[in-house]
Simulated assay, not measured.
Amino acid sequence: MAQIRKLPPAAPQPREAQPAKVAPLWVSTVATLVFGILYAILPEHITLGPSWLPLVLELVIILPGTTASLIRHPLSARTNRVLAFCLLGITTTALIIGVILLITTLPERHEGREAISLLRTGALLWISNVLVFGLWYWEIDGDGPHKRATAGHQAADFLFPQQADGNTHNWIPHFVDYLFLGFTAAIALSPADTYPLSRRAKALMMVEALIAMTILTILIGRAINII
């Protein structure tokens, strides 16, 4: 009788790699609305047009995406990215105009009673600076949250400490990580534990530090001298 050869057991098929999770997107939306609220309470002489205008424009842009998510028909990642850059354009323009107007109207504010208002305005603009650039870092790093998830949250435009080993623990950067990056850049005028890798990241950090330095040294310093 012919011997029957036993076939070797089939090698197990590898499971398809599951894409990494996308960090929650609603936090950045809330941060954008917080900027609009902070801008709305700025003095009218610091804003170009009504101070509430950026907040209204933000709501108009955010509403379609929020509605689509609520009815379980979310917008595509490409559409969300376009809307995100529209929001960044509005917030960045409003911030820069506010800083320029504060500088140009500074010589007129020399009385003691103006000092508290000047400090309050400088603080609002400084916080707005942190929010705006936190949003920029969140959106440009690795070309946005969806692309970062596809790439397994590897270091792209910024290198977080958790990514130094190639992100072997599948760490996911959330918006608060980029907000902390914006905070350290605005208060220390340099990166702390997170390093910019790309030219666009370095350029953005330089702009944020320049705005923060202007607010901290010129505007708030002038208010203290008035006191």
Rank of each mutant, 00 (worst) to 15 (best):
Y178H: 05
P145R: 09
R148E: 09
K147Y: 06
A156D: 04
D193S: 11
V176H: 14
R109N: 13
I116C: 06
G142E: 08
D143I: 08
I187D: 00
Q163R: 02
S128C: 13
D141N: 13
L135A: 11
W138E: 01
T150G: 09
E108H: 14
I140N: 02
L124W: 05
W126A: 05
P173W: 02
R109Q: 15
I103H: 08
G166W: 01
H153E: 14
S128V: 10
A155K: 03
R120H: 10
I187P: 01
Q162K: 12
R109H: 15
A156P: 00
I127Y: 11
L101P: 05
L189V: 09
L189Q: 02
D177I: 04
S117L: 14
I100V: 15
W126V: 03
L197A: 07
Q162C: 06
N129F: 04
L159R: 01
G134V: 08
G134F: 09
R113D: 10
I100T: 14
L159T: 00
T104C: 11
W138S: 01
K147E: 13
W136M: 09
L197M: 15
I172W: 08
L181H: 05
E111D: 15
W171V: 05
A123N: 02
D193K: 10
T150R: 14
A156Y: 01
A123G: 01
S190N: 04
I187C: 08
P161E: 00
N170W: 03
G134M: 09
L106C: 07
L197G: 07
Y195M: 07
L125W: 02
L106I: 05
H169M: 10
A186V: 08
L189T: 02
T105C: 06
L179F: 14
I116P: 04
L101D: 15
H110A: 15
L102M: 14
I187M: 14
L181T: 02
N167L: 09
R109C: 07
I116L: 14
L106K: 04
P107S: 09
F133S: 00
T184P: 04
T194W: 03
A186N: 05
L189C: 06
N167C: 11
F183V: 07
G134W: 06
E108L: 13
D165E: 04
R148C: 10
L102D: 12
A149M: 11
L189D: 01
A192M: 13
Y137K: 03
H146M: 08
R148Y: 11
W136K: 05
I140L: 11
F158N: 00
G134Y: 07
I103G: 08
R109L: 15
L124I: 12
A185P: 02
W138H: 06
L124A: 12
V132I: 12
G152W: 04
R148H: 11
F175G: 00
S117D: 15
I103Y: 11
P191K: 05
D177W: 06
P161D: 01
A155N: 05
W138L: 03
L159F: 00
P196F: 03
N170A: 12
W138A: 01
D143E: 14
P145Y: 10
D141W: 10
L119D: 10
R109G: 07
